[in-house]
Amino acid sequence: MDPSEVEFLAEKELVKIVPNFSLDKIYLIGGDLGPFNPGLPVDVPLWLALNFKQRQKCRIIPPDWMDVEKLEEIRELEKREEAFTPVPSPYYMELTKLLLNHASDNIPKADEIRTLVKDIWDTRIAKLRLSADSFISQQEAHAKLDNLTLLEINTIREFLLNSLNCMFKLRSNLQAGSSGRTFTDY
């Protein structure tokens, strides 16, 4: 899957905006939005929030977890724990990136947040590489991956799945006589 498609899915997440215009309720196929009144916060999907923002029609309120103290806590916990800790949002990385790139003026301490989220991401990806390595070296057939986000899975998907398939092919050729399983993929 292309990372831009993961971002596409993340753009459906709801964020709070404060519009500076008024508009009646909109009846979208995916659900109703609004009504919009100047100064009153309202929930909209991120794609729409970014569009309004680019046209300077709103101010985006960052999600609760996008806060230096909370993120520092998460970072420490992530470093301490051996397993993956629950993330504040299933699309935390994508949301951070999109919001900081397009609406950094609405987010207090944007630079610190960028660094913190990057730290959390790096720690988690390092764990992910380690567990992928042990998954392969122990020749496991099942792994539980709770708390991993789609983007994280996506970073190792191609590489891990292709290597597992290759190894499976090599092994099934070795055992071809005993298992009797036919396997054709040239």
């Binding site: 998954f135 057939a141 099942h142 792994a143 539980k144 991956l145 709770d146």
Partner: peptide
């Protein structure tokens, strides 16, 4: 329910 897995 809600858990994530990697398997065949």
């Amino acid at each position: 329910e809600g858990s994530q897995h990697l398997m065949r």
